[in-house]
């Protein structure tokens, strides 16, 4: 049981990394990015190919995966600069599907639908499966902690304030003299870097990646993480990711106790439960379990120029 919990802990950590990355783009800047798995795939494939085919060290592979995913993020941000809301969502969803179809059909890049297997993991052979998972849990926790602290600083910085401004009203921010396009691109760059990082870590953890992995299912799980945890705040992103993995896994243990249910119906019920959970959260706690506290962010001290004039 404890080995299983460790493995699920790693999964939750990787989900949390994705949720944190998604939170920058969607939660803070308000840009709906449904292409999450696309960037996850870019990170996973970049690191997988570099370490497997070119013998790069794992750390260098992960760094490259993060960077390349970020570059893709910049590219997607630039081509979608004029899009907002549903239109942006559709284009980014299209980006993820395009990545999946390219990886399926261009066999020379990474074996097409066969996928890449045997991606190295740090000390995988030496440690054996259980110690390896434990080690990976430590790596993922450290990664989540570092990213969390960095993003927390970003949230409280003027940069984070501008992103929230763009989310609330793009025009007002523009009037305030900010370069909105630049900020959007930067938000994408930061968020997709985190997605790339999580993809690279996932590849090194499971040792196998294939285009089928990058189906929209994962995007929906992360979206659910953010909505349940609380959109727009980093604590909510992490809590939501852990909650979603807990929910997905715990239903396995509960459903066999539902009487008169075949395995097929049980599997369908699991999917229904996930949909119901999402609906309930949106109905009862539309802002998530830990809502974003806007008043929490320090405003600059009023300067003399902004003091009201005394009569």
């Amino acid at each position: 049981m404890e080995h299983y919990l460790v493995a699920m802990g790693v999964t939750a950590g990787i989900y949390a990394l994705m949720a944190l990355g998604m939170n920058v783009i969607w939660g803070m800047a308000g840009l709906i990015n449904l292409g999450l798995v696309g960037f996850f795939a870019v990170g996973a494939y970049t690191s997988g190919i570099l370490t497997l085919k070119f013998g790069w060290p794992i750390l260098a592979g992960i760094a490259a995966g993060t960077l390349v995913a970020s570059l893709f993020g910049v590219f997607v941000a630039l081509i979608t600069v004029r899009l907002r809301g549903d239109y942006l969502a559709i284009v980014t969803l299209g980006f993820a599907e395009t990545m999946r179809i390219i990886m399926s059909n261009e066999l020379w890049i990474a074996n097409g639908t066969d996928g890449l297997s045997g991606i190295p993991g740090p000390f995988r052979q030496a440690l054996g499966p259980h110690a390896f998972n434990l080690q990976f849990l430590a790596i993922v926790i450290v990664a989540v902690a570092i990213l969390f602290v960095l993003l927390q600083r970003l949230t409280r910085s003027p940069f984070g304030r501008v992103l929230r401004g763009i989310r609330e009203d793009e025009q007002v921010v523009q009037v305030a003299g900010k370069n909105v396009v630049m900020f959007k691109v930067k938000a994408f760059a930061v968020g997709t870097a985190a997605l790339g990082l999580s993809g690279a870590l996932y590849g090194h953890f499971t040792s196998y990646i294939a285009p089928d992995l990058f189906a929209p299912l994962l995007t929906l799980y992360i979206k659910l993480s953010l909505l349940s945890g609380g959109l727009g705040n980093n604590v909510g992103a992490v809590v939501g990711a852990v909650l979603v993995v807990f929910f997905l896994e715990s239903t396995r243990f509960v459903i066999p106790y539902v009487p008169e249910l075949s395995a097929v119906q049980g599997a369908a019920l699991r999917e229904i439960l996930i949909a119901v959970a999402l609906l309930l959260i949106l109905r009862i706690r539309a802002r998530g379990l830990i809502p974003e506290k806007v008043g929490d962010f320090p405003l600059p001290e009023p300067t003399r120029a902004s003091q009201p004039l005394k009569p």
């Binding site: 299983y4 493995a7 699920m8 499971t206 196998y208 189906a215 299912l217 997905l248 896994e249 396995r252």
Partner: peptide, 11 residues
């Protein structure tokens, strides 16, 4: 789905 399948297999 490979990701979901790995979780199920571990269980």
């Amino acid at each position: 789905n490979p990701e979901a399948a790995v979780r199920a297999a571990r269980k």
